[in-house]
Design a protein around this nucleic acid. Structure first.
Lengths: 139, 139
DNA sequence: GCCTATTCTGGAATCATTCAAGAATAGTGG
DNA sequence: CCACTATTCTTGAATGATTCCAGAATAGGC
């Protein structure tokens, strides 16, 4: 299924900016809005900042993209959706990698106490140093 | 151990704004900077915004406060530190509650694959609706 | 091909937070 | 108790990511 088809099935209008945003996130998993903008402009030089933001929002709203917001970093976007996998974030450079569910299939965590909250998602973020930053700090 | 003593032991200068910040976070667990500012000004009306921000940062840096940053919300601060407990966040009103470690003592989660990252923390955030927002949305 | 709702463009605004320069002050040594 | 110096405070401006706005463009149904 190509991007155009995915957009249509999700009930979104198929526009050049949206296809380009979808394609950019495919090329750059965990890209932030700025990186997406740069990539999109390689093929569509006149796309506005807002077209990218609203495209990212529309795509995330229908589930074609997943938005992750690591503390202290701008939001990142990825196409791997629906499995609630987790992420490792490098404290030094902000690099992100996927991590499969810690325990079994998603939703993979049950809190020991929920204080009456109706919980629908368990989000896990691992923090540390990526391979290349780890080497630098050890030196 | 009172606030003054805690500050001193952590190697921080004891100032009125810092004591007030520490006291405010004790009164309001999971308060954001703005709520802390308001509370601090109840006793010290002329404290600046930056005194609160720099106080929060200094206190968090030495571990007297823990800073949490739920996606889409301003940073919150709490005095319960050192146990890496987790949080439930209400999607509707942003209310936060503590949740004990999902599995055993902290650090309580081990990723199935780390991609070479040197991981030092597993942060878990549960998302859902708090008791009062859950009631409203069910109605 | 036309019509209308949706999306896009350009520009300004918002929010949380941080930076900068100079005044105030905590804590040390005398 | 006082002076000294580094730290912290004040005021005010700046930053970065993101959103809001009004009007122009356009996707998709008829």
């Amino acid at each position: 299924m190509d991007d155009t088809e995915e957009l249509r099935r999700s009930g979104l209008r198929v526009t050049a900016p949206r296809r380009a945003v979808l394609e950019a996130v495919r090329q750059l998993p965990h890209a932030d809005a700025d990186a997406v903008l740069t990539t999109v402009r390689a093929s569509l030089p006149s796309v506005s900042v807002q077209a990218v933001y609203s495209g990212l929002k529309a795509l995330a709203d229908v589930g074609l993209l997943r938005r992750i917001e690591p503390a202290g970093h701008p939001a990142r976007y990825e196409r791997r959706t629906g499995d609630n996998h987790h992420h490792v974030v490098c404290r030094s450079c902000g690099a992100i990698d996927d991590v499969d569910c810690a325990i079994g299939p998603s939703p993979c965590l049950t809190p020991s106490s929920s204080h009456g909250f109706a919980i629908d998602e368990a989000e896990v973020t691992y923090w540390g140093l990526c391979p290349s930053c780890g080497v630098k700090s050890a030196a």
